[in-house]
Simulated assay, not measured.
Amino acid sequence: MSSKAMGQETLDLGETMLPDRSAPPERKRALRLTGSATALYRTSGSGFETSQVPALELGFDGLAGDRHGGLTRRAGGREPWYKRGTEIRNERQVSLLSAEELGETAEILGIDEIRPEWVGANLLIAGIARLTFLPPRTLLMFEGGVTLKIDGDNAPCRAAGHAVARHYAGRADIPFAYVRAAKHRRGLVGWVEKPGRIEAGEAFEARVPEQWIYGS
């Protein structure tokens, strides 16, 4: 086969593998937003719920001694592609929630409130509308020097629903109803890119990366 023929064959193969360039992906420009961590929380033992604290000391392994701390974690129901218990990278070191979204979820459920500590929050965030929709790779750069990197939204689970239900006697429906009500309102999970100390009320800049919708 000639080099020209070989080259044409390679080119044809490449073209069949490329997406349609006549329809470029939709792109959204990068953004910078400002917010603050109005309250901070951590677990005090092996339990799911957290307790409010004045500051968080964060290392590359997250919160030392916290239930969700560590450089690695064990795969569970969120990772069905791995055998349960497989050791994987811990991208869920911290949980971030907003009072606005907690209030919306409570309203849907017909209850007075959902407190951040009931559903395992580490940071209660103010100033960022639709917090749960911040995309992966967003950086939260705190005044004190800490940087958190967002992995993505935190899918609601029945464990959090059971935690809420314990505060509302007679509402056996909450554990399952919570999963639906909190969808896209459950906040975010992330990990520590630059360690240090965060204090309650500390401001941060959210650097939202350029985004695009990838299609085949």
Results as ranks from 00 to 15, higher is better:
A126V: 00
H167G: 08
Y178M: 00
F142P: 11
A160K: 05
A155Y: 04
R130G: 02
L134T: 06
D151T: 14
V146E: 05
F176R: 15
K149T: 13
I125N: 05
I114P: 01
A177M: 02
L134I: 08
R158E: 11
I174C: 00
G127Q: 02
V146T: 03
L148W: 04
L123D: 05
L131G: 02
R115F: 12
V146M: 03
H162T: 12
P175M: 15
E143N: 09
W118M: 09
W118Y: 10
I128F: 08
L123W: 04
D153A: 12
F176T: 13
A129R: 14
A126C: 05
I150H: 08
A129D: 15
P116T: 08
P136S: 11
G144V: 09
G120T: 01
G120V: 00
N122E: 11
P156M: 00
H162I: 15
K149D: 06
D173Q: 09
L139D: 11
N122P: 11
A129Q: 13
A165R: 09
G120K: 00
A155V: 14
V164E: 06
A163M: 11
R137T: 12
F176P: 03
T138C: 13
L139K: 15
D153F: 10
P175F: 15
A177E: 10
R137C: 07
I128Q: 03
K149V: 10
A177W: 00
D173H: 12
G170V: 00
R115V: 12
N122R: 11
R130V: 01
M141S: 11
P156K: 01
G170D: 03
Y178L: 00
V164Q: 06
A159C: 01
D173A: 06
A160E: 06
L134H: 02
P156A: 00
D153K: 08
G161H: 09
A129K: 14
P136R: 14
I114G: 01
A165W: 04
T132F: 01
P116Y: 07
G144S: 10
R115A: 13
C157Y: 09
R137E: 15
A155M: 04
A126W: 04
P175K: 14
I128H: 03
G161T: 05
V146R: 06
P116H: 10
P135A: 05
A177D: 11
H162K: 12
T132H: 00
M141E: 11
P156T: 01
F133K: 12
E117A: 12
K149Q: 15
I150T: 05
F176S: 15
A169Y: 14
P136M: 02
A165G: 06
L148A: 04
G170W: 08
T138P: 15
G161I: 04
I174Q: 01
V119W: 07
D173G: 10
L139F: 05
